[in-house]
Amino acid sequence: MIKTYALYAFAALAEIAGCFAFFAWFRLGKTVWWLAPGLVSLVLFAYALALVPSEAAGRTYAAYGAIYILASILWLWIVEAKFPDRWDIAGVVICLIGGAVILFGPRSA
């Protein structure tokens, strides 16, 4: 279980960093060289998500979505220095509950 959370956290960080590198190049006027680490980061994201133990890729990606949303709001706060408002926090909580239902809900055989 800890391995799953660690993989999700690593995947989220790698995905956000990779996407931010593209955003920085495209929207913030950074050099094209920002794309190189961004692409490496996105490859690491895909690799980490593929390592998550699950019998269904769709379920893995759906549960990961909640972790990604949490990581995005943390990125907003820590990297972009914009404090999340109550709606950001409420949305994260709702998504984490939904991710937990997907990940831990009882399954019929």
Results as ranks from 00 to 15, higher is better:
41 S>D: 04
36 A>Q: 08
49 L>Q: 01
38 G>D: 05
52 V>E: 04
36 A>T: 14
61 Y>G: 02
47 Y>P: 00
61 Y>R: 02
56 A>N: 13
57 A>R: 09
46 A>Q: 11
55 E>V: 01
46 A>I: 00
58 G>D: 06
63 A>N: 06
52 V>T: 06
45 F>D: 06
54 S>P: 03
48 A>T: 08
41 S>Q: 02
38 G>N: 03
51 L>S: 12
43 V>F: 13
45 F>Y: 15
47 Y>K: 04
45 F>A: 04
45 F>C: 11
55 E>W: 00
45 F>N: 13
40 V>R: 02
49 L>E: 03
39 L>N: 13
40 V>T: 11
62 A>K: 11
47 Y>V: 14
63 A>S: 15
36 A>V: 15
43 V>W: 11
37 P>S: 10
46 A>E: 04
50 A>N: 12
40 V>Q: 02
40 V>M: 11
42 L>A: 06
34 W>Y: 15
60 T>L: 09
56 A>L: 11
62 A>W: 08
53 P>G: 09
41 S>T: 05
63 A>D: 08
34 W>A: 14
50 A>M: 09
48 A>R: 06
42 L>N: 12
46 A>T: 11
40 V>K: 01
63 A>R: 08
53 P>F: 05
58 G>S: 08
35 L>W: 08
40 V>P: 01
36 A>N: 08
62 A>Y: 09
43 V>S: 09
44 L>T: 10
55 E>Y: 00
40 V>F: 13
50 A>Q: 05
55 E>M: 00
63 A>L: 06
62 A>C: 12
52 V>W: 03
50 A>Y: 00
52 V>H: 09
52 V>F: 05
35 L>K: 07
34 W>C: 13
60 T>V: 11
46 A>V: 07
44 L>I: 15
35 L>D: 09
37 P>E: 07
55 E>P: 01
61 Y>C: 08
39 L>T: 14
47 Y>I: 13
58 G>F: 06
49 L>A: 02
57 A>T: 14
55 E>I: 00
41 S>L: 13
62 A>N: 10
38 G>Y: 05
52 V>N: 06
49 L>F: 01
53 P>E: 11
34 W>I: 07
43 V>D: 00
45 F>W: 12
49 L>G: 05
47 Y>M: 04
42 L>V: 11
49 L>Y: 03
34 W>N: 11
59 R>M: 04
59 R>I: 10
34 W>E: 08
52 V>S: 06
46 A>W: 01
37 P>W: 10
59 R>N: 01
41 S>C: 12
61 Y>S: 08
59 R>C: 00
43 V>Q: 00
59 R>F: 02
37 P>K: 07
39 L>H: 10
50 A>D: 07
39 L>M: 15
39 L>F: 14
53 P>L: 10
51 L>A: 13
51 L>D: 11
51 L>K: 15
41 S>V: 06
36 A>M: 14
42 L>D: 04
57 A>H: 01
53 P>D: 13
49 L>R: 01
35 L>Q: 11
45 F>E: 02
42 L>C: 06
58 G>Q: 04
60 T>D: 01
55 E>R: 12
52 V>R: 03
56 A>Y: 09
46 A>Y: 02
56 A>S: 10
39 L>R: 02
46 A>L: 09
39 L>V: 15
42 L>P: 03
47 Y>E: 06
45 F>M: 07
45 F>H: 12
34 W>G: 05
